[in-house]
Write a protein that binds this DNA or RNA. Structure first.
Length: 731
DNA sequence: ACTAGCGACATTTTT
DNA sequence: TGTCGCTAGT
């Protein structure tokens, strides 16, 4: 049977490798029984419920290595991670496990990268060419805004971000424009969404472009439509592994289903996840995928990893105590034998600046104790919070690395240059055309671009193509027309060099020099200098990529794809021995001996925009993720006054989650020195609602030692009260 | 067509 | 705080 399909013939093990048993023993060394079970599970579906810090990555990488050692060709194993960073990390670790025996590596990538790769190979079948562009969220919004205006709607009444969110959510639920409408349209907003959606899809196709959602959706539709193609991929991937399964959305779920359908043998799908760490519902992720795995795959083997190897007990107890406040959870309780460790430090500060300086002080203390800055991290809910810390750290000379914030590839000048490159690859890319032609200004304005766009649609030619003969076109003349032609000439000349095999880095240099962008920036003074440096960096990135390929040529398409999927964002260039500053979302999958979670206030965590219990539960999980990153020492901080929206807010209250932390685990060292649980001796907890005979209702917001409590009342004032005299009632 | 200057307004979180 | 969009002026 197998010989009917050449893809199913398994090659024998390459010679000259370790003998099977020796390699196996090495691979299993140091794994606990549950981990071994997960690594060794031979065939059929596998659900690994892996609590935080339970050695999940270890299990995944060892399982991958084990599959390869058992003779499976690596290129027939697909391993999906949630971020490119995770994919890189895993690739490194698998490579280390496999040694230099000349094995290849499995397909290790995100859903998006994997689908981009698949889609490249059969783009024509969905009406795209192989060199389609990938639109990020900003691009997609811009396009939607154009369409909104074309439809005569006011983008202020119907914000494009809102519309984009709705469309994306629909796509994540496998709905196209027709499906969205068919589902029933209620209210004005949905009507607008429906109309724009119907125009958005063809607009993308005309631009020979896809958005992030399309990468997956196109592939799913293709596999649904075409049995042969589906069989090809479902037979190609003998084993599929998915990390962070709790964060998969319906499209991703469908994709996995399709890959499991129609295969001759067992359904070799191994998923790893933790429902307590599901923090991407806002992006369409559906925890039910992991909760329902056993229903979908009744023959599934389930392995629970509950021993935590990362954190000391008190930290874990804080995490456990917090997460039980969520209603829906798979039963599992993390434990650790790393000893009780230090309590969790809960610190309230006067304002955000003091919060930053407090963190800095404690960092210095950590250094004096022999720690290093690279072992420490600061987590916050929103990027906006990073600034105060950056300022404080800069002033104090503490090196830091900022992860994920205003991304390099999203800077205006970088996007300008990328627009040129995108246009070289895909002349139909309407957004790239509009961007490049306007950077720098060359006498071609918005009106001209719009006009040209219309003509392009009318003639069925690309905007770039038409630009070359602008002076002959109706309605175009003078400076705009000459500008367009000059632009077209420039691109033709770049195009020639590109087809002549000019390396990407040199091509970028040429764009900067010949477009006039470099010139324009040089004339801009200090800020322009900084931007020019960014462009130099872009050249550097391309050079690095080229070097990584070691001899193989980096294609412009490949470079652009990496950039669009944020793959290029390496850790290179970031200082070693620096504190990590990052969002709680970005913290997932990391661990640090010393962790600060800052800005733990109502409105920040949970965030204002959270309405309803479901969303609050997701915020709680977010804090849970943060807490479980900490190995040895954890600080939770909040401030009563914070600079936000350009104004100082004096009425910040500690997050409700803080009061949910179990008593006896948390301590406030500013108040009562050492001693677990002392904070709670006042019998009130931070965040608790109380009433005072004179001042009325208020919220406990801090302590000043034994029997002294600080309460913020509804008139906004914070009063320090002696419990002995003030008859506070619990509300 | 384009720029400077001004006021309004915003912030989740990511592939 | 910083970005974005609008207006008026060149």
């Amino acid at each position: 049977m197998a010989d009917a399909d050449p893809l199913l013939i398994l090659p024998s093990m390459p010679s000259g490798t370790l003998s099977g048993t020796a390699a196996l023993e090495q691979l299993l060394e140091g794994l606990n029984p549950a981990q071994r079970e997960a690594v060794l599970h031979p065939e059929g579906p596998l659900l690994i419920l892996a609590g935080a810090g339970s050695g999940k990555t270890r299990v995944l990488t060892h399982r991958l290595a084990h599959l390869v050692y058992s003779g499976l060709p690596p290129e027939r194993i697909l391993a999906i991670t949630f971020t490119n960073r995770a994919a890189r990390e895993m690739a490194d670790r698998v490579r280390a496990l496999l040694g230099d025996a000349g094995w290849g590596l499995p397909w290790l990538s995100t859903f998006h990268s994997a689908c981009a790769r698949i889609l490249r190979s059969c783009a024509e079948r969905v009406g795209l060419t192989q060199s389609f562009s990938i639109y990020d969220q900003t691009d997609s919004r811009r396009l939607i805004k154009d369409l909104l205006e074309e439809e005569g709607y006011d983008p202020r009444r119907f914000p494009e971000s809102r519309i984009q969110g709705e469309i994306s959510a629909a796509k994540n639920r496998l709905l196209d424009a027709a499906g969205y409408r068919a589902r029933g349209v209620e209210g004005e907003l949905e009507e607008v969404v429906s109309r724009v959606f119907a125009r958005y899809e063809p607009a993308l196709l005309r631009a020979n472009a896809v958005d992030f959602d399309d990468l997956l959706l196109h592939v799913v539709r293709l596999l649904e439509r075409d049995d042969r193609l589906r069989d090809h991929y479902s037979r190609l991937f003998l084993h599929v592994l998915v990390d962070e399964y709790q964060d998969t959305n319906p499209v991703q779920y469908r994709l996995l289903q399709l890959l499991m359908e129609g295969r001759p043998g067992p359904r070799n799908l191994a998923v790893v996840g933790d429902d307590a760490q599901s923090i991407y519902a806002f992006r369409g992720a559906d925890v039910r995928n992991i909760l329902g795995f056993e229903r979908d795959f009744p023959e599934a083997k389930v392995v629970k990893l509950e021993q935590n190897y990362r954190s000391t007990q008190l930290i874990l107890e804080a995490a456990n105590g917090l997460i039980v406040h969520n209603r829906r959870a798979l039963k599992k309780r993390l434990w650790s034998d790393l000893g009780e460790g230090e309590p969790v430090y809960l610190i309230g500060l006067e304002d955000d600046r003091r919060e930053a300086y407090y963190v800095a002080e404690e960092l210095e203390r950590f250094l004096e104790e022999g720690g290093s800055l690279s072992e420490a991290a600061v987590f916050y809910r929103t990027h906006a919070l990073s600034r105060t810390f950056e300022e404080a750290f800069t002033r104090l000379g503490i090196p830091y690395r900022l992860v994920g914030a205003l991304r390099f590839f999203e800077r205006a000048e970088v996007k300008d240059v990328l627009a040129y490159l995108r246009l070289l690859v895909n002349p139909w890319d309407r957004l790239a055309f509009a961007r490049a032609v306007a950077a720098p200004r060359r006498g071609v304005g918005e009106a001209t671009v719009a006009k040209l766009g219309e003509l392009a649609v009318l003639h069925g030619r690309s905007p770039l193509d038409l630009a070359g003969e602008a002076q002959r076109l109706e309605g175009l003349s003078g400076k705009p027309a000459r500008g367009l032609e000059a632009f077209a000439t420039l691109l033709r000349s770049l195009q020639e060099r590109r087809s002549g095999g000019m390396p990407v880095a040199e091509l970028i240099t040429a764009v900067i020099a010949e477009s006039g962008l470099g010139q324009a920036l040089r004339e801009e003074g200090v800020e322009g200098e900084a931007r020019l440096e960014n462009l130099d960096q872009l050249v550097g990135v391309a050079r690095d990529r080229e070097r990584e390929l070691a001899g193989e040529r980096l294609s412009l398409e490949g470079f652009l794809q990496q950039v669009s999927l944020s793959e290029g964002e390496g850790e290179e260039g970031l200082p070693e021995g620096a504190v990590t500053l990052t969002t709680l979302h970005n913290a997932k999958g990391t661990e640090f001996p010393l962790v600060f979670i800052v800005g733990l206030e109502e409105g920040l965590l949970p965030h204002f925009n959270c309405r309803g219990e479901e969303e609050v539960e997701e915020e709680r999980r977010l804090l849970y993720v943060g807490i479980t990153r900490a190995m040895r020492r954890l600080y939770l901080t909040y401030a009563f006054s914070r600079f936000r929206f350009g104004k100082r807010r004096e009425d910040q209250l500690p997050s409700r989650f803080l009061e949910e932390l179990p008593r006896g685990v948390v301590v406030d060292p500013q108040l009562d020195g050492v001693g677990v649980g002392r904070t709670q001796t006042s019998s009130f907890a931070i965040g608790e609602r109380v009433a005072h005979d004179l001042f009325g209702p208020g919220t406990v917001c801090g302590f000043e030692g034994e029997g002294v409590v600080r309460v913020r009342f509804e008139d906004g004032a914070v009063r320090t009260l002696l419990l002995e005299y003030a008859k506070l009632r619990r509300l």
